[in-house]
Computed example of a mutant assay.
Amino acid sequence: MAIHPYTNFQRDLKATSFPDKRAGHDYQMLGDAAAAKMVSDLTALVQKHGKEGAYVAVSECGALFFGKNQGAEEYREYSYAMSHALYMASQWARFADLGVRWTTGNGLIGEKPGPSRTLFGGAPSFVRTPDAIVREQLSGFFHGGGHVVASEVKSNAEVSTRETPLGSSYETLVTNATVDKNGTLSVLVVNRSPDDDVKSRVDLGGFRHAGSVDVSAVAGRSYDDFNDDERPDAVTIKKSRATAKGDSLNWTFPAHSVTLLRFSPESN
């Protein structure tokens, strides 16, 4: 069974416009959990009433005002800026936890020139949006041929927002973890805070690793950063390596970022 768990700003947040740019970011993060709950609720019904092997697929997802950018005057770039990449990465992490096998969202190219709510904008100056870059970053994470393993955030900070029908705060961190077919542990961490880095200890739960950690992060300079023909590399993947000792790694996750930590298994 397929579902379109869109965040509809008018329906879900009773908003006809963004009061300011920050609200355009916050409304997407607030909508993420509500959209995931739509999938969770349907999954429970399919498992209860469906035939053996029945499952839920997400045929489209995203966050928008339904209409031609209506209400988005204060943050017109929201649908192709870093904010939207954080929303989509949060959705994918939650869907993976729910066992969703297939999901899609956003078209490949736009009908008009320039950036748009697509992966590569329009002709003639196609650019990779932050959404497209995060998909590139997480390709191996979602196609590693392994399985999702349990992950949780203890004492997760909350980002405060104005009062809305979906509450007045949202979780700072959304996480997921997988072990691929080669035994590599990958930890996905989405920091949705528009302002604050988060210093954390990543507890590996006894996973025996080789010691070195491959790190990739997508952040930009601000939550509203995006790529266009004048700044095609404003948002990029930054790669590095770190060393983990014992059962944990201390790491700082930058504000408005998607980070992937990959721990290779210990050699026999």
Rank of each mutant, 00 (worst) to 15 (best):
Q28P: 03
A217Y: 01
E73D: 14
S155W: 12
N227Q: 06
A234G: 09
E111M: 14
R22A: 06
V187Q: 05
V179L: 09
S240R: 11
K21V: 15
S139N: 00
D97G: 09
A96S: 06
V39R: 07
E111A: 15
M1G: 15
T172L: 04
G24V: 05
K68E: 15
A244R: 08
S90Y: 05
L13W: 06
D229F: 01
N69Q: 14
D247G: 08
G211V: 09
S59T: 15
N176E: 09
L119P: 01
L13P: 01
V58S: 09
A23Y: 03
F66K: 07
D247T: 13
L166M: 03
Y75I: 03
V46M: 11
H4F: 07
Q70V: 15
M82A: 02
L188T: 07
Y27L: 09
H143K: 07
R162D: 12
K21T: 13
L188D: 04
T184R: 07
Y75L: 08
F142L: 11
V153Y: 00
A57K: 12
D228F: 11
F263Q: 08
P265Q: 11
N191V: 10
W102I: 04
A150T: 13
A150W: 03
G140W: 01
H256T: 12
V258W: 10
P232V: 03
S212Q: 11
A123L: 15
G121F: 10
A242L: 11
D12T: 08
D97H: 06
I3K: 02
G31E: 01
A150G: 09
T252H: 15
V58N: 04
F9P: 02
S200A: 12
G246N: 11
V58G: 04
A93K: 00
S248Q: 10
R231A: 14
V58A: 05
S83A: 15
G53N: 13
K154L: 12
V258D: 03
D32I: 01
A15I: 08
V56P: 00
E266A: 15
V127S: 03
A15F: 04
V149N: 03
L166V: 08
D247H: 10
Q28C: 09
P124D: 13
E266C: 12
S116I: 08
G31S: 03
L13I: 13
A132D: 08
L188K: 03
R262L: 08
V218W: 00
A35Y: 00
L260P: 00
S200W: 02
A242N: 06
V127Y: 07
D26Y: 02
T161I: 06
T172R: 08
T118L: 00
N250I: 13
D26K: 10
D41Y: 01
V218C: 02
R231P: 01
Y75F: 15
F18L: 10
K51W: 14
V202W: 06
D41H: 03
I133M: 02
Y170A: 00
E266I: 12
T129I: 05
P232H: 07
T172V: 12
N182A: 13
